[in-house]
C-alpha cells in the first residue's frame, strides 16, 4: 500500500479531480456559458447517467451478465412500487425485502 506522505499526496490529487470536474463550468461562470442547444441536450444527462450506474449493477453477477438474479428481481420490484406509490420508504423496504428473500431462496 502507498504509505505516509505519498498517501496524503494521492488524497490531494484525488480531491483535485473532484474540484476540477465538479467545479469546471460552475466556477468559470458567466464566461463559460454554453449554447442553448447544448443545455437542452444536457436535460437528458441525469436519466442517462443514473441508468448507466443502475443497469450494470442489476444485470451483472461477478462481472458477467446474469438475467435471472436477486438484484434484478429486487430492482423490478422497486420500479413497480415507485410507479404505483409515492411513499419514499416503501421502495427501500420492498427492494431489500425482495433481495434478501430471493437470496434466502437460493437465487444468485
Amino acid at each position: 500500500m502507498i504509505e505516509g506522505v505519498w498517501l496524503w499526496a494521492a488524497f490531494v490529487l484525488l480531491a483535485l479531480t473532484t474540484l476540477v470536474t465538479r467545479g469546471s463550468f460552475i466556477v468559470i461562470g458567466e464566461r463559460g456559458r454554453l449554447p442553448a442547444v447544448v443545455l437542452r441536450a444536457l436535460r437528458y444527462a441525469p436519466a442517462a447517467a443514473l441508468a448507466a450506474l443502475i443497469v450494470p449493477d442489476l444485470l451483472l453477477v461477478q462481472g458477467s451478465v446474469a438475467p435471472f438474479n436477486s438484484k434484478l428481481l429486487a430492482g423490478l420490484a422497486v420500479i413497480a412500487v415507485a410507479l404505483k406509490w409515492r411513499n419514499p420508504w416503501l421502495p427501500f423496504l420492498t427492494g431489500m425485502g425482495v433481495l434478501w428473500t430471493a437470496r434466502w431462496g437460493g437465487l444468485a
Partner: peptide, 12 residues
C-alpha cells in the same frame, strides 16, 4: 469524476 463536467455545465 468526468460525468460531473456534464452536471457542472447543466447547473452552472
Amino acid at each position: 469524476n468526468l460525468r460531473f463536467v456534464i452536471f457542472s455545465a447543466a447547473v452552472a
